[in-house]
Design a protein around this nucleic acid. Structure first.
Length: 736
DNA sequence: ATCGCCACCGTTTTT
DNA sequence: CGGTGGCGAT
């Protein structure tokens, strides 16, 4: 047999894989048989390809597909990976277990949950559910009221899940990441307690509980660990820099016995620290698995040299990095372009015009993408694209299942799966005439006592005016009671919901109905309702724009940078690169600042041939004022000559790429950000040694317990106990 | 006390 | 879009 090709033999297929298609380090990563493997891979270096070839290789070596576990960050990337594998391997790849951490956790908990004392009947909460619960709890805790300045629900959800993701105490977390909320700390701790109780009482789990319980299963239950470990002999993890501590622990526990584990990641692309991702996981990996072989992939197969030069320069300015300079053999001399619009509208017009130009050069719409920091940065552009008839799909904004009518419908289906799901009951009951929050609450409390809440509904002593509604609802649950086929259940629900639906959305229900029809097709495709409900939460389908004839067409992608990860396009626009918008004004200093820089790096490295950067010179601030702004500091740090400026007509600017006075912030801009790094170093070199008395605006007075390690410091506070503080955030000062 | 409806506001990033 | 506050109706 030729050394460079191998043939896989499965039940129904033979496929030949040519290792000549890989470069040397890739080949090494693919053909290493046993032991732990860390692959540090730059942007566009063929990570996915390497993983897919490795799956093929393992199968060829006789590893059974069921024994391979492929953990990826997004379900999309695992699907794409398995699809690519399908090109090589036909059917066998379907039997490879691949999915997200959360998806696999769900699967395992349904199967082995009895070890932890809960059955398989739990429902999963998505983010907006969690926000809804915050709302209910805020009311019952008396936290609402206009004099009470309280953080938004989304922030609250972040805070509560942050304790799991970042594995620290709630008060430490608030202090480190949300210092402005420190005065509400008691309320938040209270809320956390009630939230946990709520989840326990209603048989629901949130995203974090899936991971926590998976870890508990491996950590605390030897029998379960043995069963699960025996299931998978080869573990592979993609995007390892985006895992948090608990996920790293899970990987460690899964691979503990055999150490056949391969992780792939790029520290320069770590952009999820707000969710607890910690790229030090990569650095720690060789310590956890001592015989780790490390392989670097530095050749870029995606972008042309001028684009690569720019992206290398973006990351060159990072304060902390692991040197890795990418090179490419792809030819091309087209420099990235930079455009400054007078305002957001001009920027949008520029993008629209350039898109038309690219299309006239023969680029298909689906090879073009526009990326931005936050969902709402593209509003102006969306209007522009709509009026010029360009089809596009927006990612990272509102998901199909997040709109009210879809959630209404799903609430019924969820109740069929978990009749004790108070949140869904609340949603369903509020649609009844004359039933508001108070009445809904009374009803939920009443039926929660019953064995079958759906059937108990008809026994509720209700007033005459709204008896009819309750009766109708009770009949629906009676009809659904014995039924298990998802398609039929949907029919029942729709019969009930349709009149309400048409009343609520009188003005635009035909449009919404199309979405519901789409959902019906999806629901009917499932064998059991449980897996539909799970998947809709773990992997919500996106809203897909259809053209006027109703068929699928080529669409351009508009996306937040976060959702563009792992993808690539021929032409990429990165818009909204203005100071205060990128980095986001709410990004703090230190590590958060660096993360924003990596975010720009991720955005720019999505481009294969064309890269356009743009920003508006005037943006509207939160108080509806127009404000002059300069370009993002990340751009002004770049070396001259790496990009080409375009003027308002989109033609080449006669002046070379240097910065004009207009590019710098004029008024109202805080320059302290740029000098903060120096202050940080000063703070670190201070004498914060053991025994020194310090004071802290929130924790009060205390004594330093241990010498600082890295950027953290342990302090014993008289009133709040032992705390670990980060020098980047803590406002501590030394007491004389 | 509770519900229904209208007008206004403010948006990081997400499995 | 989804909250939130105000106000009139029940």
């Amino acid at each position: 047999m030729n050394n460079d090709t191998f043939t896989t033999t499965g039940d129904s297929m033979t496929a030949t894989v040519n290792l000549d298609e890989l470069n040397k380090p890739q080949r090494k990563a693919v053909t290493t048989m046993d032991g732990s493997l860390l692959v540090i891979a730059g942007a566009g270096s063929g990570k996915t390809r390497t993983l897919v070839y490795r799956v093929a290789y393992l199968l060829e070596q006789g590893v059974s597909p069921e024994k391979i576990l492929l953990l990826t960050f997004t379900r999309k990337s695992s699907q794409e990976m398995l699809w690519r594998a399908g090109q090589l391997l036909n059917e066998t790849c379907r039997r490879v277990a691949g999915g997200t951490f959360h998806g696999i956790a769900n699967m395992l908990l349904r199967r082995y949950g009895h070890y932890l004392g809960f059955g398989s009947s739990f429902t999963i909460l998505d983010r907006s559910d969690a926000e809804g619960i915050m709302n209910l709890l805020k009311g019952s805790l008396g936290l609402s009221g206009k004099d009470r300045q309280f953080p938004t629900k989304r922030v609250l959800v972040n805070i509560l899940s942050g304790t799991v993701n970042k594995s620290i105490d709630l008060d430490d977390l608030i202090y480190q990441s949300y210092p402005h909320l420190a005065e509400h700390i008691d309320d938040i701790i209270n809320l956390d307690k009630h939230y946990k109780e709520f989840k326990f009482n209603n048989g629901v789990m949130d995203y974090d509980d899936l991971l926590v319980n998976w870890k508990r299963l491996l950590d605390e239950v030897p029998d379960a660990r043995a069963e699960i470990a025996a299931r998978y002999s080869h573990i592979m993890v993609d995007e390892y820099q985006d895992t948090n501590l608990i996920q790293a622990d899970i990987v460690r526990l899964l691979a503990h016995e055999h150490e056949n584990v391969m992780v792939v990641g790029d520290d320069s692309q770590s952009i999820y620290s707000f969710r607890g991702a910690d790229f030090y996981n990569i650095m720690r990996f060789p310590k956890v698995f001592p015989d780790t072989r490390i392989i670097k992939l530095e050749e870029n197969y995606r972008s042309s040299q001028p684009i690569l030069s720019l992206t290398n320069d973006i990351i060159r300015n990072a304060s902390e990095k692991y040197t890795k300079t990418l090179f490419t053999n792809i030819e091309g001399d087209r420099k990235p372009y930079l455009f400054a619009g007078r305002d957001e509208r001009e920027e949008a017009l520029f993008v629209t015009k350039k898109i038309a130009e690219l299309r006239s050069k023969g680029l298909e719409l689906n090879t073009i993408a526009v990326l931005f920091r936050s969902g709402f940065h593209s509003y102006k552009l969306e209007m522009e694209l709509n009026s010029s008839g360009v089809e596009f799909e927006k990612r990272g904004g509102m998901k199909l299942m997040e709109s009210a009518h879809n959630k209404d419908l799903i609430a019924f289906l969820r109740l069929r799966v978990n009749p004790f799901d108070t949140l869904s009951w609340n949603r369903v009951l509020l649609h009844l005439d004359k039933v508001g929050p108070k009445t809904a609450r009374k009803i939920t409390d009443f039926i929660a006592e019953a064995e079958n809440p759906g059937l108990a509904l008809s026994e509720y002593p209700c007033g005459k005016t709204w008896e009819a509604g309750i009766t109708r609802l009770a009949r629906l649950f009676k009809d659904m009671d014995g039924e298990t086929k998802p398609g039929v259940l949907y029919e029942h629900v729709w019969n009930y919901y349709q009149p309400l639906f048409e009343k609520i959305y009188r003005d635009d229900f035909p449009k919404r109905q199309k979405e519901l029809d789409e959902m019906q097709t999806i629901v009917a495709g499932y064998d059991d309702l449980q897996s539909f409900v799970d998947e809709v939460i773990l992997d919500p389908p996106e809203v897909i724009a259809r053209d006027r004839s109703g068929g699928d067409t080529e669409r351009m992608i508009l996306s937040t940078i976060h959702s563009s990860k792992g993808l690539e396009w021929d032409a990429v626009f990165v818009m909204g690169l203005a100071d205060g918008r990128f980095p986001s004004s709410s990004a703090g200093l230190g590590e958060q600042w660096e993360e924003e820089r990596r975010l720009l790096y991720v955005a720019a490295t999505r481009a294969k041939k064309y890269l356009y950067l743009s920003y508006p010179r005037v943006i509207m601030t939160m108080d509806r004022q127009f404000k002059r702004v300069g370009m993002s500091p990340f751009l002004s740090e770049l070396r001259a000559g790496l990009f080409e400026r375009l003027d308002s007509d989109g033609k080449r600017d006669t002046t070379p790429s240097f910065l004009t006075a207009q590019d710098f912030p004029t008024e109202g801009t805080d320059f302290t950000k740029h000098t903060r790094k120096a202050q940080k170093i000063n703070l670190e070199s201070d004498e914060l040694q053991a025994g020194v008395s310090v004071t802290h605006p929130f924790f009060g007075e205390g004594v330093v317990v241990s010498d600082q390690q890295g950027r953290s410091l342990t302090v014993q506070f008289y009133r709040h106990g032992l705390k670990t503080l980060h020098l980047d955030y803590a406002k501590i000062s030394i007491l004389q």
